[in-house]
Amino acid sequence: MSPPVVLLGPQRLRPTLVEAVEELGIAGGIAAITAGWEEREDEIDELRAHLGRRVVNLQLHRRTEQIFVRDREFFVAYRERRVRLRELQDVYRRRLASTLDAAIDVLRREGDPEVLDPEREDALEAVRRLDARHLVRTAEIAAEFEAEWRPGEREEIARHRAEVRALVADCEALAIAGGNVAVLVNRLRLHGIDALVRTTPVLAWSAGAMAMTATIVTYHDNPPQGPGYPEVFGAGLARVAGVLALPHAHRRLRLEDRFRVSLFARRFAPLDPLAFDDGAHLHCTGPRCSRVEAVRRLTPEGDVLEEAA
């Protein structure tokens, strides 16, 4: 049986990590990943104090910077890959705006349901197709890069991976914090954490929770400009199946807007869009989630409901 994964709500104002660790019966050290905090990844004093046990900072961000300095050829290739992904994201964003605008127009239109309902579903399906294509394209670029550059076989990366593996082997669980989800996921992959999360208990929150799911969707319903449409970012490490993790949902999504909630849920079906706000706790072992607290599900009807175990 695969080890448990616990997804938590944001930890800054209401830390619940230590409770989750104790529930898992973990007495030993914790390997912490705070690469999503980027330059601030070493600022884990609060985390250490909260956990009150040995915490090993894996320093994936710092390690990555070292790799980039020492393996310039790889760095240049990695940067080109990033440019390609950004361009792809930009094109997707532009296409998404028009496709989603059209879908919203049709969904809001009043008229004969017999005529409109099939059109509504097809308009939404067009958005789903675009999302799915983007997920495939980002995965293709990542796979092409892996095949061409074989990061795990490069000396500098292999050395860091071995060190990280040894550090994790000396701990009982991985704690993966939030931050910049793009930076975090890239660092996790670069250091081979996608394999380690399958053999080690994981506790993850905010962007860390997003990284543990199969599909990462970024969102902000009230940006300073633009329509604020959620975007598929790419694939996560797929440690938890069927879930779309939405940290800080109460702040970043207009959960009182039933139309937007419904559109979100229908667009990303069959994934379960789950809001992870303060105090949220989802405990999964294999495909089953055995403990759920303060996790709310966005429904196709436009409701935001407390999720039951």
Binding site: P10, G178, V181, A182, H220, P224
Partner: peptide, 14 residues
């Protein structure tokens, strides 16, 4: 400010 100096709005979840 957000237009002149855009931040990583959609990507950061702390």
């Amino acid at each position: 400010l957000a237009w002149l100096f855009p931040g990583p709005l959609g990507l950061v979840y702390e």
